[in-house]
Amino acid sequence: MFRTRRVLAGTLLTGFALLTGAGAAVADDPSPSPDPSASAEGSGPTEAGTTFRTATALQQGQTATAGASTGDYLYWVFPADAGQRATVRAKVTLPESATRHGASTWQVDVYDGLRRRQACMYGKQTGKVAADAGAVELTCVLRTVRAWSEPWADDPLPGSYYVRLTVVDLPSADLGLPVSTEVAVTSADKGGASDVDGTLSQPLVPGVSSAEPASADASAAPVALGTEPEDGWSSGWWTDRWLWTVGGGVLGALAAVFGYSLTRGRGRPSRVPSGV
């Protein structure tokens, strides 16, 4: 009986050490979201596209800059993987107030790889600036990207995401005035809290057949638009939920063995001293 309890206690301590060690490894090796303030100026692209098809590729953690005219539609595209909650920040520096004729309203929108507009969880997506203001800053915090979703749902999925920045209201006399823009994308890793059981076979990365065919009979090779994460797309099978699932199974098995040992010990008949 005592030997069984010693073995059980050692097994419990070993399982607890394995769980705490794995948890510490995950905690000591986080995936911090890049800080846009830490990016050197000019580290990202210095131009923007004017349509979805010509969107400029942008990696998370980079700061993109571009000069444009008031009224232009500016597009960037960045990759977002499962478990990431992306935050898009945009800043528009306006021309001198003496050249403007009134207030203006600017807006940043985000679309997924299927060009579905994604709602912002929170942030200042639309900003109205007075005629004498020098700049406007916008923010859009997206929902956490899911590894899989129902076909009818509008959930964000792994793949390319488009940022569109434009003015939505201003005096017509101010159209064409020069502005300078900055766009940065960061993300926070939400891990197992947002994990699901299914995965996409391929991320939602649009492509166009812009490559010249090798011959008249050959079709044009598809060219992917946008980029993929620097460390590649996640395989989708490993999440930190595995730690809790395995740990819960181990602890449940140990609890069953411990309960069995207690009931088995109580069921033994007491020994009668010899010679009585």
Rank of each mutant, 00 (worst) to 15 (best):
residue 125 Q to C: 03
residue 179 V to W: 00
residue 121 M to V: 13
residue 8 L to C: 05
residue 14 T to G: 11
residue 234 S to V: 07
residue 266 R to W: 15
residue 102 G to K: 09
residue 59 Q to I: 01
residue 172 S to I: 09
residue 262 L to P: 00
residue 69 S to W: 05
residue 217 D to I: 05
residue 144 T to Q: 04
residue 173 A to S: 15
residue 17 A to H: 04
residue 61 G to A: 05
residue 110 V to H: 02
residue 160 S to W: 00
residue 125 Q to F: 02
residue 166 T to Y: 11
residue 47 E to K: 11
residue 162 Y to F: 15
residue 4 T to E: 13
residue 151 P to Y: 05
residue 192 G to D: 08
residue 69 S to N: 11
residue 33 S to G: 15
residue 30 P to M: 10
residue 130 A to L: 12
residue 16 F to C: 11
residue 248 G to C: 07
residue 2 F to Y: 09
residue 60 Q to W: 01
residue 39 S to Y: 03
residue 62 Q to W: 03
residue 34 P to R: 12
residue 189 D to K: 09
residue 216 A to I: 11
residue 88 V to Y: 00
residue 257 V to W: 12
residue 240 D to A: 13
residue 226 G to D: 04
residue 168 V to G: 06
residue 140 C to N: 03
residue 256 A to F: 10
residue 146 R to G: 01
residue 224 A to R: 15
residue 122 Y to Q: 13
residue 13 L to W: 08
residue 15 G to I: 13
residue 156 P to V: 01
residue 40 A to D: 11
residue 203 P to R: 03
residue 32 P to S: 08
residue 146 R to C: 01
residue 75 Y to K: 02
residue 154 D to Q: 13
residue 145 V to E: 00
residue 221 A to T: 15
residue 260 Y to N: 10
residue 21 G to H: 08
residue 63 T to H: 02
residue 103 A to Q: 11
residue 200 L to E: 11
residue 123 G to E: 05
residue 127 G to H: 07
residue 71 G to V: 01
residue 234 S to T: 13
residue 170 L to S: 06
residue 173 A to K: 14
residue 253 A to W: 13
residue 8 L to H: 08
residue 258 F to I: 06
residue 224 A to Y: 09
residue 185 V to F: 03
residue 53 R to V: 08
residue 125 Q to R: 14
residue 174 D to P: 08
residue 239 T to F: 03
residue 113 G to N: 01
residue 111 Y to T: 02
